[in-house]
Design a protein around this nucleic acid. Structure first.
Lengths: 336, 336
DNA sequence: CTGAAAGCGCTTACAG
DNA sequence: CTGAAAGCGCTTACAG
């Protein structure tokens, strides 16, 4: 039923070699036959079968995008941006969601091989990076990693300077007079661990002793449920910090809710700083002071590298590291 | 470089017909040759080329998912859920983002034809439905629409009863003693228009005259910028409603911010109800009372219909309409 | 149980 | 400028 190149050949009495030439604008074709063919294609509403094309050309012009969790708006945005860039360069994206599950990630990477994508872009942090490294090494197609760093020299990566970001937060809070600054996290990803390192180093640089009771780490499950018993305990005992640094905005927003229930006001009683600058950070009340992670720039660079590799350009492995910056909103103020 | 079925044939001295049989478990193969083939495949780490397979079989086992805006967390969730279901049935999803742009949507639908997906699932409301209808009619593959209703009898659709949802809100607010209930919207999609109709009908059913000054409609651009001058004006003039019904949670969250700036408290000064029950509705402070739209169920049904169609089962066009329900949180209270 | 052959819908040297 | 032929990597009647 679907019209093929043969139908056009039959209708126009032109060989499919020539028709292929007009479709792809490859090789010389006389004006006359070109017109005839073009007209026939329009008349029959002919569209080349991309599958057949891919098989012949041995390239599919699609790239696989593997996402840890597309439900996370931050990565959904990254995905959106990547898709747009790829499309501009004539590629289309096949998005594969792996839900932070290393097994599904492995399966996904495998199927990317089967489905014959021309390259793979992995977006988002993962707890475990061993499997991705193994998978990448087995692939014959280029892979670039954005916002996840297995620290393997031969894989192209684009990352944020999380340590610097952590320091920024501490510097800023200290400049507002805060000295009792809590850090809340899950230490789930290397990004969070970097932010924690920045927190420690920032305090040290300012000559503030690190109080271990102010570092609160709990599983992602608890965060999802919106609980943080350790922090509640601290406050109940009268040891409340004057400021809280949350390892990401998602956790910061949870904290807003918890403090509100306790009758504490942000920023009057406690200042709060997040990390990432997700959309919700600006929408929430009070607006969240946070560290802006330029995910769009990171994706820009990642896509650029990937396209370069897919076009066969070799060159040394790239490891880009971008610097974040602070966005001041309404959740922080000078300590009383 | 990539190992093909021919390499296996050569290595095992078995014809590729037979090898294909063991790969697909189609037709009889002796235990002995099956073992030999399986072993060879493992040894060479052979993976069938899905592109070639698709070309032969004339089905790709992929479905196109067209999203109006994947950055919208609500639809990102829908997409995630759909992807998961499809995967369970052996399909993989190609997600295509169209950014509420009818032209990009058209292009996307066209390219879906090229890329030879086996079916298309469209998720999310669109302002204009004429083009999708046209495109769908030209397609030789099944298409089902979720949460968008062009009101065309021959396209399968799954939708929410938005009118009923709007009535639910009014009933609930009236039961709390509210009579001055504002409705804020953009009237952008048919869903919003349905909610508005429910609002009007709900008021009428309760014998409350509709006050046109309490219906505030403004473009999505203004909502994005977080402005709502008409509402501000109303309040400044002392004509504040006692409750506000926002056509979706996104707008409700904007309202929270605006009222907060005015020094008004939710729910003490004004009650607020949203629509959709996005994740943020539960995370925000105060927790947002809203109408739960069971998008996962809607996707379930949509995918089920689509798979049925892709498997060739005909049957009458389906138009499912689901009922939403109210989720009470902290943004509403009895009128003083 | 197994294999040779044709076919899926394209592209691309090669020869004319 | 144009066409016949081979090939991309699979599947599937058909014959044995």
């Amino acid at each position: 039923m679907k019209v093929t190149i043969n139908d056009i050949a039959e209708l126009t009495n032109v060989s499919k070699s020539t028709i292929s030439r007009v479709i792809n604008n490859s090789g010389p074709v006389s004006e006359k036959t070109r017109n005839a063919v073009t007209e026939a294609m329009e008349r029959l509403d002919y569209k080349p079968n991309e599958i057949a094309r891919s098989l012949s050309l041995r390239r599919t012009m699609t790239v696989g995008v593997v996402m840890q969790d597309i439900r996370n708006p931050y990565y959904a945005y990254a995905c959106w941006h990547g898709d747009r860039l790829l499309e501009k360069s004539g590629y289309s994206a096949v998005i594969c969601n792996v839900d932070n599950d290393p097994e599904r990630e492995q399966a996904c990477l495998n199927s990317m091989g089967h489905r014959s994508v021309d390259g793979v872009l992995c977006i988002g942090p993962q707890e475990e990076t061993a499997n991705i490294v193994r998978a990448v090494e087995e692939m014959e197609i280029p892979v670039v990693l954005v916002d996840t760093d297995p620290e393997i020299a031969k894989i192209d990566t684009v990352n944020l300077d999380n340590i610097y970001g952590g320091q920024l937060v501490v510097d800023y809070l200290v400049s507002l007079g805060h000295r009792r600054i809590a850090f809340v996290t899950s230490d789930f990803t290397s990004a969070e661990r970097g932010r924690r390192a920045g927190y420690s180093e920032g305090l040290e640089a300012r000559g503030i002793d690190l109080d271990p009771s102010l570092i609160i780490s709990q599983g992602e499950g608890q965060w999802h449920r919106g609980e943080c018993p350790a922090l509640m305990e601290l406050i109940r005992k009268g040891n409340a910090p004057t400021a809280i640094f949350a390892s990401n905005d998602f956790k910061a927003i949870r904290i807003v809710r918890l403090l509100h229930r306790l009758g504490l006001s942000i920023p009057d009683d406690i200042s709060l700083v997040g990390f990432d600058d997700i959309d919700a950070a600006a929408m929430v009340t009070p607006g969240l002071t946070t560290i802006h992670q330029p995910i769009d720039k990171m994706i820009d660079i990642g896509v650029r590298i990937l396209i370069k590799r897919m076009e066969g350009r070799e060159g040394p492995t790239e490891h880009e590291v971008l610097r974040p910056w602070l966005v001041e909103r309404e959740s922080t103020r000078k300590v009383r």
